[in-house]
């Protein structure tokens, strides 16, 4: 057990856990930020995607010792601004079904758009292929992303 300082959604937090504890479980079990979801634990499904220093990372595969000292944004942090066009279009286009993967979809997309507001369809596909949706909301995700990219 050791103490790790991380900045989560703009707030400095200190947690005392083993260094190999994945960030996912620190967020969920230690800090109570359950918007970040557990799906596979192997970096295969993307449900746990958060931003670490503005980059999308699968938090199930990032040990806390690697996240220490870094700035982390979770879906709760992104949702501090409900006017974010992703949320608005996701609601308008009724993208979500069960909703379990959607925080991961949204965090992945938000990080991509932060780096490149006009990604190509290939870039979008390569990025979004990393987040699985069992309900099959992909078509509406695609339409929502196309709208965001088109309207800037």
């Amino acid at each position: 057990m050791a103490r790790y300082a991380i900045e989560v959604n703009g707030t400095q937090r200190t947690v005392e856990v083993d260094g190999d504890t994945p960030l996912l479980w620190v967020l969920r079990d230690t800090l109570g930020l359950t918007g970040t979801k557990f799906g596979c634990g192997e970096g295969l499904c993307g449900a746990c995607t958060v931003h670490i220093d503005r980059k999308a990372e699968k938090s199930c595969s990032v040990p806390i010792e690697k996240a220490a000292g870094k700035s982390i944004t979770t879906i709760e942090g992104l949702a501090a601004n409900k006017n974010n066009p992703i949320f608005k279009i996701w609601i308008e286009r009724e993208v979500s079904q069960c909703g379990y993967c959607q925080p991961g979809q949204i965090m992945t997309l938000a990080a991509m758009l932060n780096q490149n507001a006009k990604p190509s369809p290939q870039q979008i596909a390569e990025t979004m292929n990393g987040v699985l949706c069992r309900c099959g909301t992909y078509q509406r995700i695609r339409e929502a992303i196309e709208t965001i990219v088109r309207e800037g």
Binding site: R28, D29, G32, L33, T34, G35, T36, K37, F38, T74, I75, E76, A79, K82, F87, W90, I91, E94, S96, G99, Y100, Q102, P103, I106
Partner: peptide
């Protein structure tokens, strides 16, 4: 009609089974 459960799920606020907690809970 827009789905009533959607916004809370998108914002990470809605509780799925896996998200529920109780005081003194163990894992």
């Amino acid at each position: 009609i827009h789905r009533l459960d959607t916004p809370g799920k998108l914002y990470g606020e809605a509780l799925f089974g896996i998200d529920h907690t109780l005081p003194g809970m163990r894992f």
